[in-house]
């Protein structure tokens, strides 16, 4: 081992450390928003990274927690939207047809792949 070898190792480790630090310091850009539209008209957008309960026109209640949005209550008889699973990934949506409400995720995590082979 020559002196330069150690310098090389140290340099690489420092660079790795810097990148790791930068990654830690960058605020969570991955946080998407839940976009609520009623009959095609934007009603509001709600950040997924803060826990909140959104009441939509006294007909539906959307709950956001742990980065996921879930419809917890709806006044319609079929309750299809309430039975849908919580959404968190870009492009996912919950739709309440009777009240014409669409909740969709914008700019969140990219859809994860099932598998990747090389």
């Amino acid at each position: 081992m020559k002196k330069n070898d150690w310098i090389l190792i140290a340099a690489v480790l420092v660079v790795a450390g810097i990148f790791f630090g930068m990654h830690l310091l960058t605020p969570g850009v991955k946080g998407g928003v839940a976009e609520v539209t009623i009959d095609g008209v934007l009603y509001g957008t709600y950040a997924l990274d803060e826990n909140q309960t959104v009441t939509i026109r006294d007909t539906n209640r959307l709950e956001i927690g742990e980065g996921k949005a879930k419809m917890v209550w709806a006044d319609c008889p079929d309750q299809i939207c309430v039975n849908q699973k919580a959404i968190s990934k870009e492009g996912e949506s919950i739709i309440c047809l009777p009240n014409k409400i669409v909740v969709s995720i914008v700019g969140g995590d990219k859809k994860t792949m099932d598998a990747v082979t090389y």
């Binding site: 690489v12 790795a16 990654h23």
Partner: peptide, 17 residues
């Protein structure tokens, strides 16, 4: 086609060493 794999960079550097 994304820079998001960048967070992987330090891990790969250390593994390379």
């Amino acid at each position: 086609e994304t820079y998001r794999v960048g967070y992987y960079f330090p891990v790969l550097l250390i593994a390379g060493v």
